[in-house]
């Protein structure tokens, strides 16, 4: 199963989005969160993201969902470091993207399909 890592500036936000995504994954997929900087403040820690990616990967790949700014760049660095193999960054809204990705991943879809599902979530209107 494709794993999911939710990356946010805020620990609480990352944990909350991961909680929602985990519920959508129906207990079948691993959803990890990485939030806040190394001092516990707002920010992103590349070490924590790398650790979350390792923890979420069972061999089928990992999709990264990010909030904005430095989270995006940190995630891009992690993808680059890992050679882009088995880890992908979604250009998607955080909550909707994580929910879509978790739902698709729980079907056993491959990383490319899970990524497409997350990015398609951009088109979902709320009202």
């Amino acid at each position: 199963m494709v794993g999911i890592v939710v990356i946010s500036h805020s620990r609480a936000l990352a944990d909350g989005v991961a909680e929602v995504a985990r519920a959508m994954g129906a207990g079948k997929i691993v959803v990890r969160s990485a939030g806040g900087n190394v001092r516990g403040g707002l920010g992103t820690s590349i070490e924590e993201v790398e650790e979350a990616v390792r923890a979420a990967d069972d061999g089928d790949g990992v999709l990264l969902l990010v909030d904005l700014g430095s989270s995006v760049m940190t995630a891009k660095m992690v993808v680059e470091d890992l050679g882009g193999d088995g880890v992908a960054l979604a250009d998607a809204p955080l909550v909707e993207g994580a929910v879509a990705a978790a739902s698709m991943a729980a079907t056993g879809a491959d990383l490319r399909t899970v990524l497409n599902a997350a990015e398609a979530a951009r088109r979902h209107r709320k009202i």
Partner: peptide, 15 residues
């Protein structure tokens, strides 16, 4: 720099 700089400056300058 990546690990210790907050904001986008960390990844940008670190990289």
């Amino acid at each position: 720099i990546v690990s210790n700089t907050g904001g986008v400056a960390g990844p940008l300058y670190g990289m």
